[in-house]
Amino acid sequence: MDYELAIENAPESIPGGTGVLLIHPSTGETDRIDTDFLKTDTDRLLVISTRTTAREVQQKLEYYGVDEKSADILDTLSVERGYSRRSSDRVHYVSSPDDLAGIVETTREFLAENEGKRRVSLDSITEMAYYADEERALEAVEEILELLEEHDAVGLFHLSEEVHDDADVAAFKELFDGIVYLDEDGTVEAEF
Rank of each mutant, 00 (worst) to 15 (best):
residue 3 Y to W: 00
residue 4 E to V: 04
residue 6 A to C: 02
residue 6 A to P: 00
residue 6 A to M: 03
residue 10 A to Q: 01
residue 14 I to Y: 00
residue 15 P to K: 12
residue 17 G to T: 04
residue 17 G to S: 09
residue 18 T to W: 05
residue 18 T to R: 09
residue 18 T to K: 08
residue 19 G to M: 11
residue 20 V to R: 03
residue 21 L to E: 07
residue 21 L to A: 05
residue 22 L to P: 09
residue 23 I to Y: 04
residue 23 I to A: 13
residue 25 P to V: 04
residue 25 P to Q: 11
residue 32 R to M: 13
residue 32 R to E: 05
residue 36 D to M: 01
residue 39 K to N: 02
residue 39 K to M: 01
residue 40 T to K: 03
residue 41 D to K: 03
residue 41 D to A: 01
residue 41 D to T: 01
residue 42 T to F: 03
residue 42 T to C: 01
residue 43 D to L: 02
residue 43 D to M: 05
residue 44 R to K: 14
residue 49 S to V: 08
residue 49 S to M: 07
residue 49 S to A: 08
residue 49 S to W: 03
residue 50 T to L: 04
residue 51 R to A: 12
residue 52 T to H: 11
residue 53 T to R: 08
residue 54 A to S: 11
residue 56 E to W: 02
residue 56 E to G: 06
residue 57 V to E: 03
residue 58 Q to F: 06
residue 63 Y to K: 14
residue 64 Y to I: 13
residue 65 G to W: 00
residue 66 V to T: 07
residue 67 D to C: 03
residue 67 D to K: 06
residue 67 D to E: 11
residue 67 D to W: 03
residue 70 S to W: 11
residue 71 A to M: 07
residue 75 D to W: 01
residue 77 L to S: 02
residue 79 V to Y: 05
residue 80 E to R: 12
residue 80 E to G: 06
residue 84 S to K: 15
residue 88 S to C: 07
residue 88 S to T: 11
residue 89 D to F: 14
residue 92 H to A: 12
residue 93 Y to K: 09
residue 94 V to E: 01
residue 94 V to F: 06
residue 95 S to F: 14
residue 96 S to I: 14
residue 98 D to P: 10
residue 99 D to K: 14
residue 101 A to G: 15
residue 102 G to L: 15
residue 104 V to K: 12
residue 104 V to L: 10
residue 105 E to K: 14
residue 109 E to P: 02
residue 110 F to S: 02
residue 112 A to P: 04
residue 114 N to F: 00
residue 115 E to W: 04
residue 115 E to P: 02
residue 116 G to Y: 05
residue 117 K to N: 04
residue 117 K to M: 00
residue 118 R to Y: 06
residue 124 S to D: 13
residue 125 I to N: 07
residue 125 I to K: 06
residue 125 I to M: 10
residue 126 T to I: 07
residue 127 E to G: 12
residue 129 A to F: 01
residue 129 A to W: 03
residue 130 Y to K: 09
residue 131 Y to R: 10
residue 132 A to V: 11
residue 133 D to S: 07
residue 135 E to T: 15
residue 136 R to D: 10
residue 136 R to I: 11
residue 138 L to P: 04
residue 140 A to G: 03
residue 142 E to P: 01
residue 142 E to T: 13
residue 143 E to V: 05
residue 145 L to F: 10
residue 147 L to M: 06
residue 148 L to R: 02
residue 148 L to S: 00
residue 150 E to D: 11
residue 153 A to S: 00
residue 154 V to R: 02
residue 156 L to G: 05
residue 159 L to R: 05
residue 159 L to D: 00
residue 161 E to M: 14
residue 163 V to K: 12
residue 164 H to W: 14
residue 166 D to Q: 15
residue 168 D to V: 15
residue 168 D to P: 10
residue 170 A to V: 15
residue 170 A to F: 13
residue 173 K to N: 12
residue 174 E to C: 09
residue 178 G to M: 15
residue 179 I to W: 04
residue 183 D to P: 03
residue 184 E to R: 10
residue 185 D to M: 04
residue 186 G to C: 05
residue 187 T to C: 08
residue 189 E to M: 11
residue 190 A to K: 05
residue 192 F to R: 09
